[in-house]
Design a protein around this nucleic acid. Structure first.
Lengths: 336, 336
DNA sequence: CTGAAAGCGCTAACAG
DNA sequence: CTGTTAGCGCTTTCAG
């Protein structure tokens, strides 16, 4: 029967060995005679002993915690990513300390201060922009950081994103190939690199086909603003096709077109989104969209982080993972 | 300019005071002369000093971390709750260490072991069932635990849920009042107290109106199984109204009825869900549902946890928070 | 291979 | 109010 907190000293006493030996048995790079190890393990089991991670962190300087800053979880893409990140790190013996970067707790910088206080071994910033002062602070504290789904000009920052430019380009190609000419774009938050790159790719794709963007409004990655953006765009001279900067907004746009403006999708308007969150496949939306390969993005993020932590790789890496256009029913396909 | 990790000793040196004084200035229940405090603060600022939370945790026995075990984030209710929990605890100076309880990492018990290793000040189990051995271990380790959205017979466990029985009852009342007689229920995972209570309330509500459940299938809180449950239920002698144990499944059921079975909702079938996640309000679903008041549930959970941590309240509390039936368009309303 | 001893950075008595 | 001292539980030299 275990009782409250059991220390290695107590285990040592019961096993009749030194406290150091107990430590050795529970430390990965250990070295204790099989006999000692067995005695220790037995005593530990009897007492219900488990090493105190915090104490270990103090002396070793490794907390085995990864701080994850995330802005908001309404867009399904993020809970999904958080779940995958958390599981992936768990599998590597790390755990995720979550920091919500929303309104309440002041700005991001103060959040990262708090993270640093916990002596995390690394920080992942998912979809949040960081001040350069902040990145400087992390570098000074020598704690690795990788940006997830945000890129930053700072060449010293590692970042994992999908191939946003190419994704936008694919959306344009698809619209053009299927006979659309009056084409609109509903933008996300303009401070986001994802927004910028998707739009650039899209506009480029249109240009390469000799087409100029017909209409553009801004939804800021928020549902209600996306609804308004859709209304504004269709108030006059409505486009035949609209690329929406992410699925989350695309759902709002679709609903607004169908239920408020009485338009049919894809008969009257074609819609393409970005992310391919699970809901995009649901029959009510059946959204054609550019997939953001969360699994691979997460795997890459974890790998970069671990190799930074273990100092295997110290150079910053920028990874862009290409995702396919998933063709479903929300964008018209012309048969020829 | 800060450099790597700055210790209180270095601050003390620069400020020309003892290391203890630095500690005092940064400890809530402090007491240092204004003059000393100012010197310390200045030195700290200059060096970019911040207390090491882990070291503080070691000596004080308080880590200011709360372990949150969560099973999966696909059902929108949970990311929402996680976000709210995280923010609420952040506001109280705590941070949330997330543990995913899915497949990979073995059973829940081993997960909780890991949590305990981090010396968290409390554990919140969101929608996961815990073995009694485990709860015993937590009690032994003297670390408070509260169940979120799960109740357990064990009277010593604190738990926060919505009023599931009453919610189910309301759904039944609504169907009956609006003229339905052939009524079905699509169940969630049968091991869950939420499922059990919602069903019990629903069946009770029907009985009180002299009606027996017409059909029952099981969706296990999973979308694909819910789809199959819908098909099975409508294969023959279809019901006119179905209560689905949560919104997540209700969306799948709705889509299956509409797009696969060609039924109209609510003209041919009325549907009521449970949770009132944000998507329930989206026009494509417009789901009538029993609201689970996440804000109040979270607030209650946090309050219970804090009062346990501070030993203000040591008695277990079971809280059920009542939520209204939100009437939207997925269930028929007979006008009289 | 094992034990003794020195801390990791901090808080909490305890004297002054 | 302030400095000194003793640890929190553990890993890690350093001798044996």
């Amino acid at each position: 029967m275990s009782h409250s907190k059991v220390t290695s000293a107590e285990v040592a006493a019961l096993a009749g060995v030194s406290q150091s030996d107990v430590s050795r048995v529970f430390t990965p790079g250990a070295s204790a005679s099989p006999k000692t190890a067995e005695k220790v393990r037995k005593a530990a089991r009897e007492l219900g002993y488990r090493p105190n991670v915090l104490a270990r962190a103090m002396v070793s300087g490794k907390s085995r915690m990864i701080g994850v800053v995330v802005a908001y979880l309404e867009n399904q893409f993020y809970p999904d990513v958080l779940e995958k990140l958390s599981s992936a790190f768990q599998a590597e013996g790390y755990h995720v300390l979550v920091f919500m970067a929303n309104n309440t707790s002041g700005n991001i910088d103060s959040i990262v201060d708090e993270i640093l206080d916990y002596q995390v071994d690394g920080i992942i910033a998912a979809s949040v922009a960081l001040s350069s002062e902040l990145t400087e602070r992390c570098r000074a504290a020598n704690i690795p950081m990788v940006l997830f789904n945000r890129s930053q000009d700072d060449p010293s920052m590692s970042a994992v994103t999908s191939a946003n430019f190419e994704g936008g380009y694919k959306a344009a190609e698809f619209f053009v190939q299927n006979g659309h000419r009056k084409i609109g774009y509903i933008a996300g938050w303009e401070g986001a690199s994802t927004q910028r790159d998707r739009e650039a790719g899209f506009v480029h794709g249109l240009r390469d086909a000799g087409i100029e963007l017909h209409a553009r409004t801004v939804g800021n990655f928020h549902m209600d603003q996306a609804r308004q953006a859709a209304r504004d765009m269709f108030a006059k001279d409505a486009p035949e096709a609209v690329f929406v900067a992410n699925d989350h907004m695309a759902f709002a746009v679709l609903d607004t077109l169908r239920y408020e403006l009485g338009l049919r999708v894809p008969e009257d308007v074609s819609i393409i989104g970005y992310d391919d969150v699970s809901m995009a496949a649901w029959p009510s939306y059946d959204l054609t969209t550019v997939r953001q390969p969360a699994n691979r993005m997460v795997a890459e993020t974890v790998e970069i982080m671990l190799s930074k932590i273990e100092n295997i790789e110290t150079m910053p890496r920028k990874v862009e993972i290409d995702g396919p256009l998933i063709v479903r029913g929300s964008a018209r396909v012309t048969k020829d």
